[in-house]
Amino acid sequence: MTSDFPTAAQTKQELRLQALERRDALEIDDRLIWDEAIVERVLALPAFETAGPVSAYWPMRSEADPRPILEALHAKGTALCLPAIVKGAMLFRRWAPWEPIVPGGFGTLVPAPEQLQVKPTILIVPMAAFDRRGYRIGYGKGYYDKALAELGPVTCVGIAYGAQEIAAVPDEPHDQRLDWIVTEAEAIHCG
């Protein structure tokens, strides 16, 4: 017997596609201005006063760009890393601005394999969609949820544009909540 009700995964896929369409439709000039506001809000969070190592992502397509955050943290002497997917799991490799990056699959760029693996204390994560409870929809592979569960206590900050907000993410037991969501307009504490 089949159900006429969509599963959480089917609903997430639909919400993901809608949110990505909204994000992709945003004007690039607006996104560049909003990225500056996101940088200021993220760097003002209390967690970044004693941060390190901090992980972010290399932006793809129309994602909010965390690279200026990483550059500012690097200038303060904060250790940085970027995620890489290796054998089906997310790990984190040391990285600093202007160091080489290589293709990492799924359209990402990552530090070279010979870079030291580190454990971040703060993760800056991308989002396709989010809600104010701190749940996010990513790209559907669950790598961040698995990594957050394995890392133990870390501070997780999602960055996105306000247009990506939805009323409620259909969260599942494996979904990990974010501590903060930062948009061009506000920093939302979800913890």
Rank of each mutant, 00 (worst) to 15 (best):
A8I: 03
D131V: 02
A64N: 03
T155K: 07
I188V: 15
A37D: 14
A64G: 01
L80G: 09
L20H: 02
Y161T: 05
L148D: 09
F48G: 03
L17I: 12
E40V: 09
L116M: 14
E36L: 07
C156L: 09
T155N: 05
P100V: 04
E114H: 09
E14D: 12
L91D: 04
G162H: 14
G191K: 10
P68V: 00
L80F: 10
T11W: 09
A149M: 10
L82R: 00
D175V: 00
G107W: 09
G162C: 11
L91C: 15
A19I: 02
P59H: 15
R41D: 05
I33K: 14
H74K: 15
I122N: 02
P120C: 08
G134S: 05
E27H: 05
R132W: 10
Q164C: 00
P103E: 14
V182E: 04
S62I: 12
G191Q: 12
P6K: 15
R22K: 13
M1P: 13
E114K: 06
L80S: 08
T2Q: 10
I38S: 02
P153K: 12
P66S: 13
G158K: 00
P111Y: 11
Y139C: 12
D171Y: 09
G158V: 00
I181T: 01
L91K: 02
D175Y: 03
Y135M: 01
L178E: 02
A51N: 13
A44H: 12
P59V: 14
E49G: 14
L82A: 07
G88P: 10
A37C: 13
D179H: 15
L32Y: 14
W58N: 14
E21F: 14
R93S: 08
E172Y: 04
A84S: 15
K12I: 01
K119H: 12
K76A: 06
R93C: 09
I137G: 04
R94I: 05
I159V: 12
F48T: 03
E14P: 05
E14C: 14
D179Y: 12
L82W: 00
D145P: 00
G152T: 06
L82E: 02
P111R: 12
Q13N: 12
P173L: 15
P68M: 03
P153F: 10
T155E: 05
W180M: 08
H174T: 03
R177M: 10
R31G: 03
S55A: 15
L80Y: 06
W95N: 00
E27C: 11
D24T: 06
E165A: 14
I137V: 13
R31S: 08
P111M: 05
P153M: 09
D24Y: 04
E49C: 12
T78N: 11
E36V: 04
E49N: 14
R136H: 03
G142L: 02
A56L: 07
V39D: 07
D145R: 05
R23N: 04
P126L: 03
F5C: 08
E71F: 01
G134L: 00
L70N: 04
R16K: 12
I101W: 01
L43R: 13
D145N: 01
A112F: 03
V86C: 06
I69W: 01
A167I: 04
S3H: 11
D175C: 00
D29R: 11
F92T: 08
Q117V: 15
